[in-house]
Write a protein that binds this DNA or RNA. Structure first.
Lengths: 236, 236
DNA sequence: ACCTGAACACCGTTCAAGT
DNA sequence: ACCTGAACACCGTTCAAGT
């Protein structure tokens, strides 16, 4: 009480960011989503983290929906668009891998990526490339469009569905949540569910992230390759 | 005012369901999610639809979270588990198709399926079968687990990501939303994005649902087949 | 067993006002 | 340009009380 030195804004709040600005808000919201789930992201909560009244937020962001959109767009800003040369199938693999790598940085916000791929500049660029590669290989417009969409969705799916991710549960309880799921599977009657019991661990823990994402991308690429091989040649 | 005949509960409310019960609530919530998006599903809203006070809901459901879980579980109740005979790859195709068909009935609630696959009886049964088929074919525990997970996620992804679905936007504006997305792509500079412009229609409208889901499942199955072919034989 | 009334803490958002 | 104060409509949820 007596010693009110210069303790004003000690270092803001637990894990809060620099000055209030649109970019800082979005960045903080992404980290918040990673730590405590997307449900924790709110106008009032973020304002509190910045030690500012809720209304101050509305200067930097039109409303909550726009904030969520901005978060989705931000995910694609660290998307590294690969060069568009070499084998078309390698281009496809590189494209999916690039999206996975971008989304992995903020797994808690990954579902926001869904609607924003075709509005963000880099997302557009990557999709354009992928469509070109697929059409160049001989796929029809319809096929190329569906395959490109599925490529991006595969990336989203791999990140959001990673074993042991538990995106919606806040950080502290996350490990317990995963453990509970594992226990539930392991406790199943072995006669009826021998495979689930045997795979209980593999289903709830991914162990090696690199291998997990690699295998996921491989499956998609292998599928595209196989479908390509089945195509009847255009002209003999 | 004068003629207060027996106009009590004319036919409840616009699209409301029979008597209040847990099943009726869940069923109504699923339809509501389909029509107006998952955000429209709430305790107070559903109570109003049943012409009942919000607190009445808590007799049939512990809280909102449990309601959402129940909705997820309900999705798997109309899952038709296919017979587990015949070629293992056909079993896998049948399994993915079965999940897609189940989820398609309530696209608005499809994201609730994510966490509930391995808690619902039929989801467990189908996963057990699929794991058995994959391991029987020679995949390791790790591989089988990842492939099975990806199978279910593929189903979720196909339904939730269908071109022209726009799950989060309420029914009335949905068509306009899809049209807006299409227009945005078609208006892109042709020199820079020739493929996006050419595929604008295919990317925003799926035209034939049967073909769309068929192609999506095909891609997954083709991938599994290709990965199987690459496996080094166990013993010569 | 099933539902209501009143109340609480918590949202997002608006509008006028401050500096 | 950037932020606050006060207020509004709307959530989910609890608890005691009704029938």
């Amino acid at each position: 009480m007596a010693s009110t030195i210069s303790t004003k804004r000690p270092s803001r709040r637990a894990g809060a960011a620099s000055e209030l600005s649109r970019e800082a808000v979005v960045e903080h919201a992404l980290e918040l989503a990673d730590r405590e789930g997307l449900d924790a992201v709110g106008i009032r909560r973020i304002a509190a983290d910045f030690q500012v009244t809720p209304m101050a937020m509305y200067w930097h962001v039109r409303n909550k929906d726009e904030l969520l959109q901005a978060m989705g767009d931000a995910l694609f800003e660290n998307l590294e668009v690969p060069p568009s040369d070499g084998d078309w199938l390698d281009q496809i693999r590189a494209a999916v891998t690039a999206v996975v790598d971008a989304l992995r940085r903020h797994p808690g916000a990954v579902e926001l990526a869904f609607g924003r791929i075709l509005t963000s500049p880099r997302g557009l660029q990557l999709t354009e490339q992928s469509l070109g590669a697929l059409r160049g290989a001989g796929f029809t417009v319809r096929e190329a469009a569906d395959l490109a969409r599925q490529a991006l969705q595969t990336a989203v799916m791999l990140v959001s569905g990673r074993p042991g991710a538990e995106l919606s549960t806040p950080e502290p309880e996350r490990a317990a949540m995963t453990e509970a799921k594992h226990a539930a599977l392991a406790a199943l009657p072995v006669e009826e569910f021998p495979n689930l019991v045997a795979c209980a661990n593999a289903l709830t823990d991914c162990e090696d992230e690199r291998a997990y994402y690699g295998a996921g991308v491989d499956l998609y690429v292998a599928g595209v390759k196989e479908l390509f091989a089945r195509r009847r040649p255009e002209r003999p």
